[in-house]
Amino acid sequence: MQCKTKLIPLALALAFAGAASAQDTIRIGHVAPLSGPNAHLGKDNENGAKMAVDELNAKGITIGGKKVKFELQNEDDASDPKQGTAVAQKLVDAKVKGIIGHLNSGTTVPASRIYAQAGIPQISPSTTLPAYTRQGYKTAFRVVADDGKLGGTLAKYAVQNLKATKIAVIDDRTAYGKGVAEEFAKGIKAAGGSVQIVDKQFTNDKATDFSAILTSIKSKKPDIIFYGGMDAVAGPMLKQMKALGVQAKLMGGDGMCTEALPRLAGDGLLEGNVVCAEAGGVTGAQEKAFEDFRARYKKKYNQDIQLYSPYVYDAVMTMAKAMQDAQSAEPAKYLPALKKVSLQGVTGNIAFDDKGDLKDGALTLFTYKGGKKTKMEVVH
């Protein structure tokens, strides 16, 4: 009997300790494709999120008078809209305090409805489809410029800098690929003059054989082929362009503008034959912060950043800053602070307009030389 009396206070003490610990842990959901053809980009995103959380925890952040620990709940959407909405509901049910993701527009947009209904703030590090922030959801934010700017900038460069007169367009029919291709085509049309879109072709995000569409395009003798899609398809497409003797530059958006493209394209990556744009970009003094991040990432993971990890890192830091500004991790309480947040991130200044879009979003134009992704210029 005496032994039981001593055990009761101990059990209560352990229970209270567990409750206190749970209160001090802030769980954030992160979603990206960790399987499938875009898994290398998804893992890069996950690494960026982990790096931000590790650094926040090392600093010992205090919110609402309590020292907190950030924790990630990573989920795989496999770039599939159905799986994306399933993991979105899973994260809502887990009562996470915020969402970083998704990577693809095709999964981000349907998932955003679920987060909005639950009132959970969502910051996408890579979704460029304009529709994402045009749905009227107060919870949707992004830290990159959208397809309107990306496609329009590439179209302007094609006409003014590359002096193209005949252009072919291919897209992979995903929300991202179709969207960026349409914005590029709008930009070409706006350029006027003698520039023509001489062919439009479609593939899918898992295709490996492009001989039929490339043969059709070759007969039109375009100066440029614009591809709306990801690097997993753009790489093999470049190989087949070379094999078929297609004499045209390949242009595309951030989905194909990766460090992995040389490996995926092999000998199809001809010197300076690819021009692509990445949403984001820094110049001057900000370049040092970006390069410091690159060095820390390489040291931590023993590999180079692929594409979006710096934006994921900034997205996590932005969410944490809003929580600190509001002195609360409760979504309803820190959401107003997120709308007004201002953070000097590694990808530039993070601040949002009334739709949740990044203010003054930059783009960086790249090509590939010596098998390396090479920056050409930053455009605001």
Rank of each mutant, 00 (worst) to 15 (best):
L72E: 00
V109A: 00
G187E: 01
R142C: 09
V87S: 02
A295D: 14
R134T: 13
I28D: 12
G371S: 07
G229R: 08
L72S: 09
P125I: 07
P331Y: 05
L343G: 03
L10E: 02
A131C: 08
K200F: 12
P331K: 01
A78D: 03
V341P: 00
A118D: 01
A185G: 11
A131V: 11
K82T: 13
E330K: 09
D267H: 00
P310V: 10
T283H: 07
Y313I: 09
D292G: 05
V180A: 00
L307F: 13
M323S: 02
K163P: 05
Q240F: 04
G255N: 05
P33E: 10
A22Y: 11
D205W: 07
A78T: 01
F366V: 00
A17Q: 10
D205S: 15
N302S: 12
Q240H: 02
A52Y: 10
N104S: 12
P9G: 01
F202N: 15
D353Q: 10
K166M: 08
I213Q: 14
K189T: 15
T215K: 14
A260D: 15
A248V: 09
E278D: 13
I63G: 06
A175Q: 15
A326T: 02
S35H: 09
L129S: 15
I225H: 02
I197M: 09
L7P: 02
M251Q: 01
T165S: 15
K221P: 01
G280C: 09
E183G: 00
A39C: 11
S328G: 03
G84K: 01
K163T: 03
